[in-house]
Amino acid sequence: MAESPAFESPVVRSYDTASDGALTLADASATVKWLVRASADGAVAGRLGAPFGSSRAAAGGALVLGSRPGEWIVLGEAGAVAEEVDGIDGLDPSDLVTALDWTHGRALFRVTGPEASAMLEKVCSLDWSDPMTPDGAVASASVAKVTCDLARNDLDGVPSYLIFCDRSFGQYLFDALIDAGNEFGLCVGPGGL
């Protein structure tokens, strides 16, 4: 995996909030993220092991999200992501496979708390109920009018959601999430996944 230049988050302006609370927003944009595209039912799909709409926690620590039919996001520590994506574009010469480090191309936020889904309902029309969006579910949808990839990734049983958007919308989406979470006492948590 090629060395990436130093990462600079698209979020350059944060907010003074309470230092802890039941609902937190974290900027996890620096997390290493790869995008893989291949046919939805080939060898690459088999190795990634996360059909569209689902996710898989790899043994090495990476998280694999089936973000669209034939499209995956792999994220986590650099070494863990490398375990999943190294050599994947040569796995099946009969398939058109692209594997791209888009760490710098996408902003990533994590919203955590019992009321996280109530907050997200304000800005996204997905059905956030447990039967439709259980832990591990992956979807794409508009969040505050920005097309985002979304994954539910609970932390110790507490509902938690990962939200990816284009880097250039990162600050806007961060602001919009702050605004949506205000009534729930949203606080900005430490950065990172």
């Binding site: 709409g53 669209r68 059905d127 439709m132 979807a139 794409s140 949808a141 508009s142």
Partner: peptide
């Protein structure tokens, strides 16, 4: 709101389509 049955995503709000 119009719920559109996407064959991949399931029922989705028409503003997302």
């Amino acid at each position: 709101m119009l719920l559109v049955p996407c064959p991949y995503c399931g029922p989705r709000n028409s503003v997302d389509l």
